[in-house]
Amino acid sequence: MNIGYYPGCALHGSSNDYEQSVRACLGALGVNLCELDDWICCGATAAHSLNHKLAVALPARSLAIAERDGYDDLLAPCPMCSAQLIKARTALARDRALREEIAATVELPLEGRTEVLNLIQIFQRIGLERLKSRATRSLNEFKPACYYGCLLVRPPQALRFDDCEHPTSMETLLSELGAAPVEWNFKTECCGAGLTMCNERTVLDLSHKIISNAAAHGANCIVVACPMCHVNLDMKQADIERHYGIRHAMKVYYLSDLVGMALGLHENELGVNRHFVSTP
């Protein structure tokens, strides 16, 4: 299966462990990722906070490239990217004048045909039965708190994925592979996202609450499908522990890490050895 791939800046930068994981896991499933030629940054929070035109034009340029190169589907494993791409696509679909204006701005014809998929949707597309048939190892030692954060499910008006208040797609997937996901309260609460550098206090507070709630409900790890959630919950966990004087030692996996392990891949092939919180 060939699929268009929009890595985004994080997966080509400090979250390259996520890219390693996604590539290894999907590779084992026979999915060939075709990286979008000369893709540009989606603009992320900076664009939508400071310039509403850029917030549409930047993702629209990449959508137009995907369309030009004939991709029907585009995997964007970073939810910031996928949400920006989908929001742009939605805005363009309902407004012909805007579509023409943006096509002129990004200097490529643009109809908004390419469908943008998150990581969970790729697994759904492959199919649970096929995943199960390829699994060589049960995930029965894992009791994950499946953490969706914000942009996998919100705003539902644009994303139309799962239930935005009580999503269960990751739980369904991981249960099929033998894991025992816990019920908990913070699966769609925000971790503070891109404010890590400039408003750390907020990030430490929100992420501490998320990890604490997962632990209180008996989780032995948290599973994410977002590079920013991973940064705040994993890389910043030592800072959270120092700030609150508490030891969490909560491992944080990408969804593709656990699926990959079920397929028989070693942790190191998936980049798990490059996470900050290590197995106790």
Partner: peptide
Amino acid sequence: IWECVSCQTCTA
């Protein structure tokens, strides 16, 4: 407006 984390919960 600078405390807002753009989590989209309000919109949702």
